[in-house]
Simulated scan of single mutants.
Amino acid sequence: MNDGRYKYNADGTLIVNNFSAIEILLTEVSSGYGKNEAGKISFDHHKAMFGMLAMIRTVAQLCETASINTFAKLKIHFLHAHGTAIRHWSMSTQAPGIYIMIKEQRVDVPISFSEKDITILPFICFFKTLAGQRPQNLSSIINPTIIRLNEGKHTSIVAEHGPMSVPNSPNPYPVQT
């Protein structure tokens, strides 16, 4: 991002528009794998926080006629790799002037092939759930209400609204003459 006065160089960005929300991903890598330089980690974290605020402002300027309810759907994501893990943070506008930054999740980076059975699944799940793409069981979406009809009690109701065809509906079994 470069607005002429300030410049933010992220290690990477990605913008996704899935029509229900706009999401932007910002990445920072603080040193090499296994390195824990507290000053660099803290600086990159704060730099990203200000970068996310600048991105929120830039989107607000580009979409200045949007409502606050629409704008509240904007979510900026931040992946911060340092030490042996990747941390996922997000920032959103909850109300005018209120910006919330939340640590969403953390995952250790798998490096040992011999431990792949216990380390790779959390790593895969981390990236599957990134940017709000939470896995959802089909049974939580498809859940019709099933009622048990009692023949003695419901016969008259079912007969009244029964499986009759509408008079002008086509006959699926035409009469052959």
Rank of each mutant, 00 (worst) to 15 (best):
M1L: 09
M1V: 05
N2K: 01
K7F: 06
D11T: 10
G12Y: 04
L14K: 07
S20L: 12
A21Y: 15
I22E: 09
L26V: 15
T27H: 06
T27Y: 05
E28L: 12
V29E: 02
A38N: 11
K40G: 03
K40C: 05
I41F: 07
F43G: 06
A48G: 07
A48Q: 02
F50Q: 04
G51S: 07
M52T: 13
A54L: 02
M55A: 06
I56H: 02
A60I: 03
A60F: 10
Q61F: 05
Q61G: 02
E64F: 10
T65P: 03
I68K: 10
I68E: 10
N69F: 08
N69E: 08
T70N: 08
F71M: 04
F71S: 03
L74D: 01
K75F: 12
K75S: 12
I76P: 01
L79G: 06
L79E: 02
L79S: 03
H82D: 01
H82N: 06
T84G: 07
R87Y: 14
R87Q: 12
T93R: 02
Q94D: 03
I98E: 00
I98Q: 05
K103P: 05
V107Q: 02
V109S: 00
V109G: 01
P110W: 01
I111K: 00
S112M: 12
S112Y: 14
S114M: 00
S114R: 00
E115Q: 14
D117P: 03
I120C: 13
P122N: 09
F123M: 10
F123T: 07
F123C: 03
I124T: 07
F126W: 07
F126V: 05
F126G: 03
K128A: 02
A131M: 11
G132M: 14
R134D: 01
P135C: 11
Q136C: 08
I141P: 05
I141M: 03
T145G: 07
I147L: 12
G152R: 14
G152E: 14
H154G: 00
T155I: 13
T155G: 13
T155Y: 14
I157A: 14
V158P: 15
E160T: 12
H161G: 15
H161W: 09
H161E: 13
M164Q: 06
M164I: 14
S165G: 13
S165D: 15
V166Q: 15
P167M: 11
S169A: 14
P172L: 00
P174I: 06
